[in-house]
Design a protein around this nucleic acid. Structure first.
Lengths: 360, 360
DNA sequence: CTGTTAGCGCTTTCAA
DNA sequence: TTGAAAGCGCTAACAG
């Protein structure tokens, strides 16, 4: 690689702009001084600082990020890892948005990576995303999507600071098993049950595949809330498929077959809820006239369907922002922060619930 | 910063792993040789290569990306810029997925950035995303979302290789005005019209806000196809709102108010189409019995609604992959490739169309 | 085939 | 308050 301390030559040789040395020479100061000005560090007289700034402007100088990163041994890059998801659905899109906002506010950039591996907890064949494995590539990682807890631990052990999205963790037995951010399904679920009860409902059933941990957590919150209001929890389990639309359809079928009295259905999430409403409609049952439905997530489809869906709101952007904040704290104070952080949920009332039909 | 050529000291001092020098010393070779082995460059005997690999394994060495980037003056990073969008909707999620697949296949990582600016073409107050402006941060950029053509040109002029998503470009007068990738609405639109015509439809109306360039392009494709099939194009324009749901509702209202004979509606996109179906249903009109509807995009909601929506498929992942391929070609052969690239569209038939109702 | 050396552009002592 | 100089870890040209 040619040396070329001459600015013009270097520019001609490759699109490599002026360097700090060029600025220093033009301003008639040392490189160190330019660096100090650049980083707003104290100990430079206003007079020289002005000279330096003038030179910077004149040359159209911008610092070379790579060089700075090498010298400081950091990257200012955060990696957003989406694990075991086909693509960014609305939920994680909004989480990503929250992460992005926070990062750009604190001057960090965001690397996006997908990661796929079998979720059975067998780490033997799992390799971390290349960008994480490459030392120095990123300062830390946010593990979103669905992760197995052992994989999160493995990344941590690599020495990469990381924070995981809690609710989709597989094999996690307690909140703070790894550094993570969760949404707390309890407050919103409680509100939903209270709301349905106040409408007069007593037979509220929960529909989902509770072999999936996030649905299992929702179900637990539902059960506790039901008991607190003196109602009997009842589950419509469709545990042999992970296709949300199918879960909804099959739940309705099972419900009607069983003949159990039911005036409201609490769906595991909005997709299931919408599917339930459609399946009900196909059988001539109208929501909320004949039966009430509440969803979970508060996704955009809540207002795109008819009737508009009452749903438990999950603050996805706040969740993302919290992940980013937590991670950056970990990065800047290694070993000083850890545990789980939680954001709350609440009910958003729309049109899909009504008092139970009087069965005279 | 302490020197520390001693491995142990350096590791204790900071989590900075072994360097190429440590490997060289352990293997009893020079740094250059290690570098050659690392990069699979020829000119190393298998014997020494084995020694080096052994040393690498023994030390658990991984190359420092930043140092390599500085030395080679490149970042191996591609920036995916989402412009003027609140967040990643399904469409761009899939584009991003396509970009990610391609990039990870060729060993490049992906930086995600949001960019907001007024779309009126007034560049005065527009600043490029920081990551783009920072020299050396990324090797190139994919400009997705909705961009004003002048902003794309401005980024190019910065010396950053870039490729834009064409269909959402504002102020673009011809395909190859900037390096871009487009989906071609013609083939799919033509198929849709042919299909409706073969079903017996003659009164097919297009519903959208054609002040939005993407809808305008769809409308033009629709018009041409109609004329080719000897049919008269007819537009239901709702040009005073950009809310797709509202466009659908208002289009139906306008259609019914006008009393014009209409047996099929070609919606500007799927959201408009679904909204049209719902608005129709509220007025007692059933799709496809009373009227046929076709959408555009082929988004996931096509199979989540009832009836399932017949729609023109846009190959979003392929589009993203093409953006990435194009950009990487530009990066590796500066000035040698340019222009516009196009991916095709096709019709996906589902349940929302039927022969027109016999109005006896 | 291989070791040595001179950078890449920036930060950070250290001495003045 | 400042300049000089020694790195950061790697690549690439050059000499052997």
């Amino acid at each position: 690689m040619p040396a070329g301390s001459d600015l013009f030559l270097r520019m001609a040789w490759q699109r490599m702009g002026p360097s700090i040395a060029d600025v220093a020479k033009l301003a008639g100061v040392g490189k160190g001084t330019v660096s100090r000005v650049l980083n707003g560090r104290p100990g430079v007289s206003e007079q020289t600082a002005a000279k330096v700034r003038q030179a910077i402007r004149q040359l159209g100088y911008t610092p070379n990020v790579q060089a700075r990163r090498l010298a400081q041994n950091k990257s200012d890059l955060i990696c957003f890892v989406l694990s075991n998801r086909d693509f960014l659905h609305e939920f994680h899109s909004l989480v990503l948005k929250g992460v992005e906002s926070y990062c750009s506010k604190v001057g960090r950039d965001l690397v996006f990576a997908l990661w796929r591996y079998p979720l059975d907890g067998n780490l033997a064949s799992v390799v971390p995303p290349r960008i994480i494995a490459n030392r120095g590539s990123v300062d830390g990682a946010i593990l979103a999507g669905a992760n197995h807890i052992e994989c999160v631990k493995a990344i941590s052990k690599l020495g990469v600071p990381c924070v995981a999205f809690g609710n989709n963790l597989i094999g996690c037995t307690y909140l703070s098993e790894v550094d993570s951010v969760w949404y707390d399904e309890q407050p919103g679920t409680r509100e939903a049950i209270r709301y349905l009860a106040s409408l007069g409902h007593r037979h509220i059933r929960f529909a989902a595949n509770i072999s999936l941990p996030w649905f299992a957590r929702n179900y637990r919150a539902y059960s506790e809330a039901m008991l607190d209001f003196g109602l009997a929890p009842a589950l419509i389990a469709v545990n042999d498929t992970t296709d949300y639309v199918e879960i909804g359809e099959r739940a309705v079928q099972e419900l009607l077959d069983s003949g159990e009295p039911t005036t409201a259905i609490f769906a595991g999430n909005d997709v299931v809820a919408v599917s339930v409403i459609r399946a009900l409609a196909r059988r001539g049952l109208k929501v909320p006239r004949d039966i009430s439905v509440v969803g979970f997530d508060d996704s955009p489809r809540c207002i795109e369907c008819d009737p508009k869906l009452t749903s438990v709101h999950v603050p996805k952007e706040a969740l993302g922002a919290e992940c980013a904040r937590f991670l950056i704290e970990k990065i800047s104070a290694p070993g000083r922060v850890s545990g789980a952080r939680v954001v709350s949920t609440h009910l958003v009332v729309r049109e899909s619930c009504a008092p139970p039909r009087q069965t005279s």
